[in-house]
């Protein structure tokens, strides 16, 4: 019984405590870099699109709100012909970022994307692509992948040997 009274007293003392609430939007909260907000598509250190349209983000998405259609340039490099995110369905779970083998898709600390018209929540590739590397500096998928693309021939990727000369008889 006394503990109840003590509790009541202690709660009453909270009248003089500082309030924890951050008065958004007057005060902007601090969001850590790994906060899961608006999704962006980053570029590799050479300035080219990182996304290779592998569709893994699309299939990892639990609400199926990412649609990617593959394109291929004349050098054989894959890129997303269209990359569409329906943010009106997105739950910002970050699975797409986890699934992305090229670090192209990243979530950013920005959540202020409300709209009155739901159609405006559909973001196209041009809305998503940023000009930087985001949280992953230095990584370029095509530099480690074995496929030959423009500017990187067979054998020029990281830890690759020269293409085999199949005409040679030497062991």
């Amino acid at each position: 019984m006394l503990s109840v009274l003590r509790t009541i007293w202690m709660v009453l003392l909270h009248s003089f405590r500082k309030r924890d609430t951050v008065l958004y939007p007057e005060v902007k909260p601090y969001l850590p870099p790994r906060y899961r907000g608006r999704i962006v598509l980053t570029r590799d250190p050479d300035g080219a699109e990182r996304c290779v349209a592998c569709n893994l983000c699309s299939v990892a998405c639990p609400v199926d709100c990412i649609s990617v259609i593959k394109g291929e340039d004349e050098t054989g490099r894959w890129y997303p012909d269209t990359f569409q995110i329906n943010f009106s369905r997105c739950i910002y779970c970050g699975f797409c970022e986890e699934a992305c083998p090229t670090y192209a898709i990243q979530l950013t600390p920005d959540f202020e994307m409300g709209e009155f018209d739901r159609q405006k929540m559909v973001y196209e590739k041009s809305d998503l692509t940023i000009s930087g590397v985001g949280k992953r500096p230095g990584y370029n998928y095509y530099r480690v992948a074995g496929m030959a693309v423009g500017g990187k021939d067979k054998g020029e990727a990281v830890s690759e040997s020269e293409p085999v000369d199949i005409k040679t008889l030497l062991p």
Binding site: V11, L12, H14, S15, R17, K18, R19, D20, T21, L23
Partner: peptide, 8 residues
């Protein structure tokens, strides 16, 4: 309630 729970 806000006051006692350190809210507004």
């Amino acid at each position: 309630l806000g006051l006692w729970q350190d809210r507004y």
